[in-house]
């Protein structure tokens, strides 16, 4: 390969990395300026000194922490429920055998093909009838066992849990649930890590369904609070962007620690299907 070729490939990849990071940097730049500094032409590309001031303003003038707490509550609760129900069902499909198993699993895979948009209006009707409009139940319960996660755990169990280990536990007199809980679950940890990340992020970033369901500002999630912030302070860019930055930060931290699991999980999920 020629040197010019090498150089231009490096340049292109470098440019792509730059483009993928720039919006994060720009968030920081805008979040660290005074409102009056934003409207300058040409725009200044450097980080300012108002970040802390803006963070305090967001906390004082908006219910940021409240929304953060709401979001954390919803995301953590749904993630824990998803982990439990999906791992239990995935384990059953991989390691137990029962009548109708093949059909039930094919059915489960088939449900993944159904486009979600069909559900929005009738689900809203259902939530209305159940009295769950405005309640977190509508955000947590319908998704607490999902086909993707069960499929994912099943694949992992089939590949990684030796039958001999389960038989040994059985000979020791463990019940099936006990075998799942004490033997299989610890082995599933890497698969659970990905599933946890995936559903936590999904829950954290969800927008349309909470927008439809939540009508009380006190119950707003971060994403709803952000768009509300954008509506109210449409001329105060630094404040809006500081809120956006704060809402993005937890996911960035999560990504720093778990990027490997997330990336390998996504590729496995995509390529296996």
């Amino acid at each position: 390969m020629t040197r010019i070729m090498h150089g231009s490939i490096r340049l292109l990849v470098g440019l792509a990395v730059l483009l993928s990071l720039f919006p994060f940097y720009w968030m920081l730049v805008m979040a660290s300026k005074k409102n009056s500094e934003i409207y300058r032409t040409p725009p200044s590309l450097w980080v300012g000194d108002q970040l802390w001031h803006n963070i305090q303003a967001v906390i004082a003038q908006t219910s940021f922490f409240h929304a953060l707490f709401n979001t954390l509550f919803i995301a953590v609760t749904s993630t824990l429920l998803v982990l439990f129900f999906d791992s239990l069902a995935g384990f059953a499909f991989a390691k137990l055998h029962f009548r109708g198993q093949a059909f039930l699993f094919a059915f489960l895979l088939g449900t993944m093909m159904i486009p979600g948009q069909l559900n929005i209006i009738p689900s809203f009707y259902l939530m209305d009838k159940l009295g769950w409009v405005g309640s977190y139940k509508a955000l947590i319960i319908p998704g607490m066992a999902n086909a993707f996660g069960i499929f994912w755990i099943k694949q992992y169990c089939t590949d990684s849990i030796p039958d001999s280990l389960l038989e040994a536990a059985k000979l020791d007199g463990c019940s099936t649930f006990r075998i799942y809980w004490s033997v299989a679950l610890p082995i599933m940890r890497p698969a659970l890590a990905f599933l946890a990340l995936f559903s936590f992020m999904g829950s954290w970033n969800d927008y349309m369904w909470p927008l439809i369901i939540l009508n009380d500002e006190a119950k707003y999630t971060l994403m709803l609070a952000l768009t509300q912030l954008k509506g109210i302070y449409s001329v105060n860019y630094p404040l809006v962007i500081t809120g956006t930055l704060l809402a993005t930060l937890p996911l960035l931290v999560l990504f720093i620690f778990f990027s490997k699991q997330l990336i390998s999980g996504i590729t496995d999920g995509a390529v296996k299907e």
Partner: peptide, 9 residues
């Protein structure tokens, strides 16, 4: 048990 395990979904 297996049916209970997959029933929630």
């Amino acid at each position: 048990t297996p049916y209970l395990a997959i029933a929630p979904f």
